[in-house]
Design a binder for these strands. Structure first.
Lengths: 171, 171
DNA sequence: TGCCAACCGGGGCGTGCGTTCCGTATCGTC
DNA sequence: GACGATACGGAACGCACGCCCCGGTTGGCA
């Protein structure tokens, strides 16, 4: 690859990182190109589609989260809650994570799979109510993350959801 | 008003009711016009803007909800929970209610005001945690209602949120 | 029944966005 | 230093949508 091509690719990625975090997936691609001091055509030389660029930006971050979720824990309930807390912390500051669950990419599936594993483990340990499914939980977290981007108090919202998730069998 | 004008107005309102409920505010106005067997221009003869049509459709339903919320209750906690439950029940079937909180209309403000009153009453009665604000609660409900439109189990989601809202001072 | 005002339909305008195309500039090699 | 391949940039296309305009039509009153 030519030197300036690599430089431009990096500039595009950085601009996309910033703007996806600020405004989510809905940010116009032309705006990303403008911040990268590059024409829109150049963006498309490096990424075939807007979704591909979005995936490239969110990939490593989401992959890291999923990796930590995969480690076995001796307290499955706490593991799930910690994971959800990490998601919420990110979503409170950046707008792209909640879109990463929505925009159809490979990441979305693996994210859901990771949550599903954590959830069933926590349910088998009796820490989380048994009548919720992975689909329910993902939808709930998605709504929660969207709520956080509207001036609501992220900490309180997360506490409410986590407490609501706890198994009712617990005293 | 001429007879056919009234007839068309009614057809537009009915089509809008159906489509806003099915697809939310994002449904194209041309589609509403098509289902009403009417041109787009006719829609604009009766309603100056798309938002006005949306408001006309959601008005009476939301107003009814707010009216019941205004009645004083001797169990403020139950009153709030009942109100939220009613919201969730509607949102589980129709997509327009969650947009009614989002789309800037008069309804949105009065909806938020009604929730605010119910919330502070419930908090003073000790039924709901004191550290949540009306803004938080509205955002939370909005996210919850959006979650419900993605195949999640509405009943479980509502239970989780309601339980999370309960005051931690309670045993 | 005839006339005029009210109303209808749908083509069209402006806008915003994702995506593509192509003439031009730049890089890297011989 | 020149040449070919590669990459650039931004103008332009296609599409979708909210909204407006205008020639034609229809309804109701005299």
């Amino acid at each position: 690859m030519r030197a300036d091509a690599a430089r431009n690719r990096a500039k595009v990625l950085e601009a996309a990182r910033e703007l996806f975090a600020e405004q989510g997936f809905e940010v116009p691609l032309d705006e990303i190109a403008a911040r990268a001091e590059v024409g829109p055509g150049t963006v498309y030389r490096h990424f075939p589609t807007k979704q591909a660029l979005f995936q490239a930006v969110t990939e490593e971050r989401v992959a890291a989260m999923i990796a930590t979720a995969g480690e076995p824990s001796n307290d499955p309930g706490a593991a799930l809650f910690a994971f959800l807390g990490r998601m919420a912390d990110e979503a409170a500051v950046k707008r792209d994570l909640s879109d990463a669950i929505t925009v159809p990419t490979e990441l979305r599936k693996s994210m859901q799979a990771a949550i599903g594993t954590l959830l069933t483990d926590a349910q088998q340990a009796g820490a989380v109510r048994a009548d919720i499914t992975a689909v329910d939980l993902v939808a709930l977290m998605k709504g929660l993350m969207q709520s956080m981007q509207e001036g609501a108090n992220p900490q309180v919202l997360l506490e409410i959801v986590l407490r609501g998730l706890q198994s009712s069998r617990k005293p």
